[in-house]
C-alpha cells in the first residue's frame, strides 16, 4: 500500500505505523460536566466502520510526522492524506 504523504510524495506503508482512530487527536476536557463518560469513549470506544475511516498514521521511518489518512477499510483505497497538525479543529 502506498501513502501519498503531503510533503514527501508517495511512500510505502512499511515506513509508517498505524496508530488508530483519528479521534485520538481530540482529548476531552477533564473539567467538562460528563468528563468521565467522555474519557471512557475517548479511551475505549471505537466505531470501527466498514467503509470510510479517518486514521492516524505515524511516519516513524521517515520524517516523523503524524498524518490523518482517510481510508476505505473495505477496499483499502486511500481517499485523503493530511498532516495532523493541519487538521486541528476540522475533524469532528
Amino acid at each position: 500500500m502506498l501513502i501519498d504523504h503531503p510533503l514527501l510524495g508517495l511512500r510505502d506503508s512499511s515506513e509508517f505505523i498505524y496508530r488508530g482512530d483519528a479521534k485520538l487527536l481530540y482529548r476531552p476536557n477533564w473539567k467538562s460536566k460528563n468528563s468521565k463518560t467522555k474519557f471512557i469513549d475517548y479511551g475505549y470506544l471505537r466505531k470501527n466502520p466498514a467503509g470510510v475511516h479517518k486514521e492516524l498514521w505515524y511516519h516513524e521511518q521517515g520524517d516523523r510526522s503524524w498524518l490523518v489518512v482517510t481510508r476505505n477499510t473495505v477496499t483499502h483505497e486511500i481517499l485523503k492524506v493530511e498532516l495532523a497538525r493541519d487538521t486541528k479543529g476540522k475533524l469532528k
Binding site: L10, R11, S14, E15, G62
Partner: peptide, 19 residues
C-alpha cells in the same frame, strides 16, 4: 529499498529517510 530511485523522483543531492 522501497523508494522510487529514478532520477526524476530522487535527484542528485536528494535525501530520504526510509526502511
Amino acid at each position: 529499498c522501497p523508494l522510487n530511485l529514478s532520477q526524476k523522483i530522487f535527484a542528485i543531492g536528494d535525501v530520504k529517510r526510509t526502511i
